[in-house]
Design a binder for these strands. Structure first.
Length: 581
RNA sequence: CGGGGCGUAGCGCAGUUUGGUAGCGCGCACGGUUCGGGACCGUGAGGUCGAAGGUUCAAAUCCUUUCGCCCCGACCA
C-alpha cells in the first residue's frame, strides 16, 4: 500500500476524550473513530488488525475441531424469555420493537440461540461432541463504556459453544479449548495469565479467565511466583497462616472506651495507637444486605482485620445470593441502633432481641485483645476476643493481595492488573435443561446437552495488545497482528532514492510481505513520527546518505538501534525477518 | 444511578466572570524557500458557538429546558 493513497488519517494532537494509551494511539494512528459512546468505526488499518486476529482465531479453532457459524444479531425476545435472561439482563439488553410492537433485542451473547440451533437438529449422542463458534458483533448497553475499544456497547466477539454427552466429555472439550486459547494468546504476542474466576451470571461451576497483564487493566489478579496458581482477586484464596487461637490466660478484661469521632478504621487506629494497638488489632465490622431471590433480604455482619478488605463475591457465595451490598446508614441504625462506624460483633452489646448472622475472616479468629465497635455510637471496646466476646463463622472472606501465601504451594502471591481477554466456562446443563435441549443417549434416554462456552473479546484484544506494546512515540505491534509488517521510508526528494524505495517495495510485495510505502512528499521527521505512531514492526529507510554507500537502514520498531543492510540484500533480509528466521 | 468536568472551524483550545462585528495553534488549499526526527514565509478557504425556548435594542456570554461526551464511583459474559 502506498501511504499517499491510503485512508490513514494520523493525528498529531491527543484527542480530548481519550485517556488510556490504547485509546489515544488507536485514534491518533488512524485505526478507529468514535461515532457514539462505546461505538466505533474501524478504519482500514484497524480492520486489517482485526482480520489478522480473526485469522489466528479461525486457524486455531479449526485445528481444535470447531465449526464456524453465523447467528443473527437481532433476536426475538422469546429465546431470552425461555431462560429468564430477558429479565435478568435488565438495562444491559438493547431492546427494540418491530412495527407490529413485538419485542426484540440485540444479542449480548448467544447461548440461547446456539442451544436452539442444536436442539432442532441434533437428536443422537452419535452426533456429539459438537463445538460451534461465531465471530460477530455483540451488543450491551454498558453502564459505562470506556477506554476506547476496551469496553464498548458494540464489540466484536468470538464465542464458541461445546455440546457433549456428559460431564466427563464436557471436561475434555473444555481442556481442548483451554489449550487452543493458550496457543491463540501466545500467537497474538500477549503476556497473559490463566486465572481462576467467578462464573458470574452466566452460570456454571468451572471457569477460567485469560487475563492480559497491563497496568491499565480493570481486573485485579494474583499469581504465585512458585507454582501456576493464579486467580482473580474476586475468588483468590490465600493459605491461612498457622496462628494459635488466643489463649484464655492472655485475654485481658474487655473495656468500653468513649471514642468520639472515630468512624473510620484510620481514625480508630489513630485513637488507639498510643496504647500500642495497630491496624491489625482492629476488627472491622461491616453490615451487608443479601437480597434473596424471593424478594426478602438478609442482613449479615462481616468481620475482617483492620488492614484487610471484605471480598464481596465470596460473601455473596457464602450467603447463597448473586450479590451483596453494604447496608445503608438507615438500615444499620434500624437494626443495631447505632451509627455506621461503631458496629461491632460483641454479643452482649447488641440491642436486645437482635440476632444477626456473623461471619468472619480466619484472621479475625486469631486477634488477641483486639479493638472493635461497641454497637453504641461514639464507643469502642478494647480487649475483644473471639470465642469469649463474640462468635462468628470463620471463612475465607478477605481479599487476597500482594505478598500473601499461595494456597497451593505456600509460595508468594503477586498482584497484577489484567484485562479480561477471554473467559471459558463449563456451563453444564444450565441452558439445555431450561430450554429442553436434549439428545437420545446410547441407553435410549433423553438427556440434556452438557455445554461449555468460550469467549474472546476480539476488539478488546486489539486494545489490550496496545496497552501491552507501546512506548511514548506510538504502538509497537507484535508481528503477528500488525496491519503491515514493514514500512519503507524514502527520505528527501531525490529521484534515485524514490526509485530504489519503489524497487524494494515491489520486491517485498513479490515475496508476500505486507508493506506500506511512505511515498508522501513529507519531510523526514513527519515520516518517522508517523511510522512510530502507527507501529509497523519493521522499518526500512532509504536516504541519500545510505544510497551513496549502497545500504538501506533496517530498524525494528521495538529496537533501539538501526542496522545498515546492503541495498541488494535488503529485500531478502527483511523477508526472512518477517518469516521469523 | 451518585459525584465532577466539558460541548465554540476537521483536531486541540481561548473568549462566557463584566452581553456589543467570533479568535489562536495545528491541519487543509495555493505560491515560494527547505528536506535524516512533527520546517519557514506569504496568501486563502472553513464556524446557524450542541439543540430548543426565554430575557434584551443586542446573547457564544444571562435564565429555563433538553441532548451528547469524558473522568471517578456503583455496575460489568
Amino acid at each position: 500500500m502506498r501511504f499517499s493513497q491510503a485512508f490513514l488519517p494520523t493525528v498529531k494532537e491527543v484527542p480530548k476524550d481519550a485517556v488510556d494509551a490504547s485509546h489515544v494511539l488507536l485514534l491518533r494512528g488512524g485505526y478507529i473513530r468514535m461515532i457514539g459512546a462505546g461505538i466505533y468505526e474501524m478504519l482500514p488499518l484497524g480492520q486489517r488488525v482485526l482480520k489478522k486476529i480473526i485469522a489466528i482465531l479461525r486457524e486455531e479453532l479449526d485445528a481444535a475441531g470447531c465449526q464456524e457459524v453465523l447467528m443473527p444479531a437481532i433476536l426475538p425476545a422469546s429465546y431470552f424469555q425461555e431462560t429468564g435472561r430477558w429479565d435478568v439482563y435488565g438495562d444491559v439488553l438493547m431492546r427494540l420493537k418491530d412495527r407490529k410492537g413485538g419485542d426484540y433485542h440485540l444479542a449480548p451473547t448467544h447461548e440461547e440461540i446456539i442451544t436452539d440451533m442444536v436442539r432442532r437438529d441434533v437428536r443422537s449422542y452419535r452426533q456429539l461432541p459438537l463445538n460451534l463458534f461465531q465471530i460477530q458483533m455483540k451488543y450491551r448497553d454498558e453502564p459505562r463504556p470506556r477506554a476506547g475499544l476496551m469496553r464498548c456497547r458494540e464489540f466484536l466477539m468470538k464465542d464458541a459453544y461445546s455440546f457433549d454427552v456428559d460431564d466427563a466429555a464436557a471436561r475434555k472439550s473444555y481442556a481442548t479449548m483451554r489449550s487452543a486459547y493458550e496457543r491463540i494468546f501466545t500467537r497474538l504476542g500477549l503476556d497473559f495469565r490463566i486465572v481462576e474466576a467467578d462464573s458470574g451470571q452466566i452460570g456454571g461451576d468451572t471457569s477460567a479467565e485469560f487475563q492480559i497483564l497491563a497496568q491499565s487493566g480493570e481486573d485485579r489478579i494474583v499469581a504465585c511466583d512458585a507454582c501456576d496458581y493464579a486467580a482473580n482477586v474476586e475468588v483468590a484464596e490465600a493459605r491461612i497462616p498457622e496462628a494459635e487461637p488466643p489463649k484464655e490466660a492472655d485475654m485481658k478484661p474487655r473495656e468500653l472506651v468513649e471514642t468520639p469521632g472515630t468512624k473510620t478504621i484510620e481514625q480508630v487506629v489513630a485513637f488507639f495507637e498510643k496504647e500500642g494497638f495497630g491496624v491489625e488489632d482492629v476488627i472491622k465490622s461491616l453490615v451487608y444486605v443479601a437480597p434473596k431471590a424471593d424478594g426478602e433480604s438478609e442482613m449479615v455482619m462481616a468481620l475482617v482485620r483492620g488492614d484487610h478488605e471484605v471480598n464481596e463475591v465470596k460473601l455473596a457465595r457464602l450467603m447463597g445470593v448473586d450479590e451483596v451490598h453494604l447496608a445503608s446508614d438507615e438500615d444499620v441504625g434500624r437494626l443495631l441502633r447505632t451509627k455506621v462506624g461503631y458496629v461491632g460483633p460483641v454479643k452482649d452489646a447488641l440491642p436486645e432481641g437482635v440476632s444477626i448472622r456473623v461471619v468472619a475472616d480466619h484472621a479475625v479468629g486469631s486477634i488477641l485483645n483486639g479493638v472493635a465497635g461497641a454497637t453504641k455510637t461514639q464507643y469502642h471496646f478494647r480487649h475483644v476476643n473471639f470465642g469469649r466476646d463474640f462468635d462468628a463463622e470463620l471463612h475465607h472472606l478477605r481479599q487476597v493481595g500482594d505478598g500473601d501465601e499461595c494456597p497451593r504451594c505456600g509460595g508468594t502471591l503477586h498482584a497484577y492488573r489484567g484485562i479480561e481477554g477471554g473467559h471459558i466456562f463449563i456451563l453444564g446443563t444450565h441452558y439445555s435443561s431450561k430450554m429442553n435441549a436434549t439428545f437420545l443417549d446410547d441407553d435410549g434416554e433423553a438427556k440434556p446437552f452438557v455445554m461449555g462456552c468460550y469467549g474472546i473479546g476480539v476488539t478488546r484484544l486489539m486494545a489490550a495488545a496496545i496497552e501491552q506494546h507501546h512506548d511514548d512515540d506510538g504502538i509497537q505491534w507484535p508481528l503477528s497482528i500488525a496491519p503491515y509488517q514493514v514500512i519503507v521510508l524514502p527520505l528527501g526528494n531525490d529521484e534515485q532514492v524514490a526509485a530504489k524505495a519503489e524497487a524494494i517495495y515491489e520486491g517485498l510485495k513479490a515475496k508476500g510481505v505486507e508493506v506500506l510505502l511512505d511515498d508522501r512528499a513529507e519531510r523526514p521527521g513527519v515520516k518517522f513520527k508517523d511510522a512510530d505512531l502507527v507501529g509497523i514492526p519493521l522499518r526500512v529507510t532509504i536516504g541519500n546518505r545510505g544510497l551513496k554507500n549502497g545500504v538501506a537502514e533496517l530498524k525494528m520498531r521495538t529496537g533501539a538501534d538501526a542496522e545498515d543492510v546492503p541495498m541488494d540484500e535488503i529485500v531478502e533480509v527483511v523477508a526472512k525477518r518477517v518469516r521469523g528466521e
